[in-house]
Design a binder for these strands. Structure first.
Lengths: 210, 210
DNA sequence: GTCTATATTTCGATAGAC
DNA sequence: GTCTATCGAAATATAGAC
């Protein structure tokens, strides 16, 4: 029951439909999007949509799954952003990349959509979580593990350390963005610096020069 | 345009309607709730609903606003949970209270609803943010300010410290709950301890006995 | 103020021609 | 495979009696 099998008859028009569905569902949500608007946006007729997808719900599920998969790709990039740098510099770079991704309109829209429909489509929540946050957490954990082996960190549970670092970075930014009231951009860089400072205070190797 | 003025004709039945609206909207969301179900749940006729509220949207807005205001009251309680205790004990207690509130089904449901409809009703996001997270942040900042004056904390920006502490507590719990996949409860207390440990590593007074 | 019954609209889904 | 045209259900909103 993935995006492929949900599409009964793959073709170019099926792609157009999926693209339009992504735009409209992400912008307006499931309930506020109707099939007429969807057909118009895709440049096809409603009947064509139903030739490819059994129902509005099936189309939504296929769309959401596809977008979550794309997310995995996006978040996996930047994994090596922190090569060969001092700990705090590397963490700052990771922080910027993380917040950039977190604040991008496509990701925010997708997350809002998934949250909104997580009761109607319970599986989506799991898929999303495994995609974006899961990938990021794994990626950061790997970096911290390397840093620990190199003596930059104290001996610790690197996965929990990664969770804490990401939490410090996220702050209430995530919530505010989801609520439609993002904080001014000027607050971002100081917040990253403070997140790094707190992380280093707990996990930085005491013996390192500072 | 608040909950009062949105209700054209206050009465006992108007209360019943608002109560039913809270339950259904929070459980099922705006789109999946219809006026027939609402009337049945409230024990009144549809016409009665429309005698008190101009439209489904008006009823939703009134309901959401009222629930956000109630939230302020809930979160303000527990402000003095941390009186006369050692720093880490107090922080642990604050942490438990915070997570309890964060995880309560009513609050999660309300938040999900507000996020889901934050494009259709942009004002709601602001109202919610000012209510729950705003109150909590203020409350924790006050405690930290007192602790700082008593010499338990280093000299610091207590508001930012409060933000970081709450972020550490929240972790990705919030996200996972909103996505419908909460982590096992057993992970909660260790996570709180670790949050406190990281916070104290950065902000705890170095001279204090440990 | 509240009800029953109904009007009206919106929207998901389909039939049938090409 | 795709379109035009349409059906039928569901849902919002209202009319009119009490």
């Amino acid at each position: 029951m993935d995006a492929v099998s949900a599409c009964k008859n793959p073709s170019k028009k099926a792609e157009q439909v999926l693209d339009a569905a992504r735009r409209l569902f992400v912008e307006r949500g499931f309930g506020a999007t109707n099939m007429d608007a969807l057909a118009a946006a895709a440049g096809v007729s409603k009947a064509t949509i139903y030739a490819h997808y059994d129902s509005k719900e099936a189309l939504f599920a296929a769309t959401a799954r596809r977008e979550c998969r794309r997310l995995v790709v996006r978040m996996a990039i930047g994994e090596d952003v922190a090569e060969h740098r001092a700990l705090d510099t590397a963490l700052t770079h990771i922080g910027r990349a993380f917040l950039d991704a977190l604040m991008s309109p496509e990701i925010v829209g997708l997350l809002r959509m998934v949250i909104a429909e997580s009761t109607r489509f319970p599986e989506l929540g799991q898929i999303y979580y495994d995609s974006a946050p899961g990938q990021t957490l794994t990626s950061v954990t790997c970096y911290l593990e390397r840093a620990r082996r190199e003596g930059l960190l104290i001996d610790c549970d690197t996965r929990r350390a990664a969770e804490q670092f990401l939490s410090l970075l996220r702050g209430d930014l995530h919530l505010r963005i989801l609520l439609g009231h993002p904080p001014p951009r000027a607050e971002r860089d100081p917040a990253i610096d403070e997140a790094v400072a707190t992380f280093v205070a707990r996990y930085g190797a005491r013996a390192s020069a500072s």
